[in-house]
């Protein structure tokens, strides 16, 4: 499967990075085996009564998160790229049909290992078809830079009267 390096027009991205003091093989296992994912996904207070992952291209990831107030959030994803142990790409199953609600995203996680530690890097890209079609109709067809939306962060600071907002992805 070819590696996608350019985002089509109309995609906005969030990039996050994190270092883990664990070998890459363990991080890969923790994020691709349902019995592990169900233990950590969502953080404290969240349980995951459903976590079924068919980790291969076109494989489905069915997931239900249960929050402390009892609210259950159903997530349906499809894996696009699976390159053990360094690259995993998935997206919302309704990526191409959803026109309302939260913008669906494609999530790309790459794992790099050095000295027994692992750097986890995620790029989440959001889109809707309506926006893509608008982009085409206005003649925007070229690639965009994958951005951390730095500007929105700067502008938001300005909007809030100069109050500091620390929204940097952790190193």
């Amino acid at each position: 499967m070819s590696t996608i390096t350019e985002a089509p027009a109309g995609l906005a991205s969030i990039v996050m990075r994190r270092n883990f003091d664990a070998p890459r093989a363990i991080v890969w296992e923790a994020m691709t085996e349902p019995r592990h994912v169900a233990r950590w996904w969502g953080g404290p207070g969240v349980t995951n009564p459903v976590c079924e992952m068919d980790v291969r291209p076109d494989g489905v990831w069915r997931h239900v998160m249960r929050f402390p107030n009892g609210y259950e959030l159903r997530l349906d994803f499809v894996f696009l790229e699976v390159e053990k142990p360094h690259r995993l790409v998935w997206r919302h199953a309704d990526f191409d049909i959803q026109s309302n609600g939260v913008p669906p995203s494609t999530t790309t996680v790459t794992l790099a290992e050095a000295d027994g530690r692992t750097t986890w890097r995620m790029v989440a890209q959001f889109r809707t078809l309506a926006e893509r079609d608008l982009a085409r109709s206005l003649g925007f067809t070229g690639p965009i830079e994958a951005s951390c939306l730095r500007l929105i962060e700067i502008l938001a600071t300005w909007i809030n009267g100069g109050s500091e907002i620390n929204n940097e992805a952790r190193p």
């Binding site: 027009a9 109309g10 309302n100 609600g101 913008p103 809707t128 309506a130 951005s147 929105i152």
Partner: peptide, 15 residues
């Protein structure tokens, strides 16, 4: 709404 949000995200996607 999601539509407003995606319009904003789309608008911001271009340098």
């Amino acid at each position: 709404t999601g539509d407003t949000l995606s319009s904003t995200l789309f608008a911001l996607a271009d340098p």
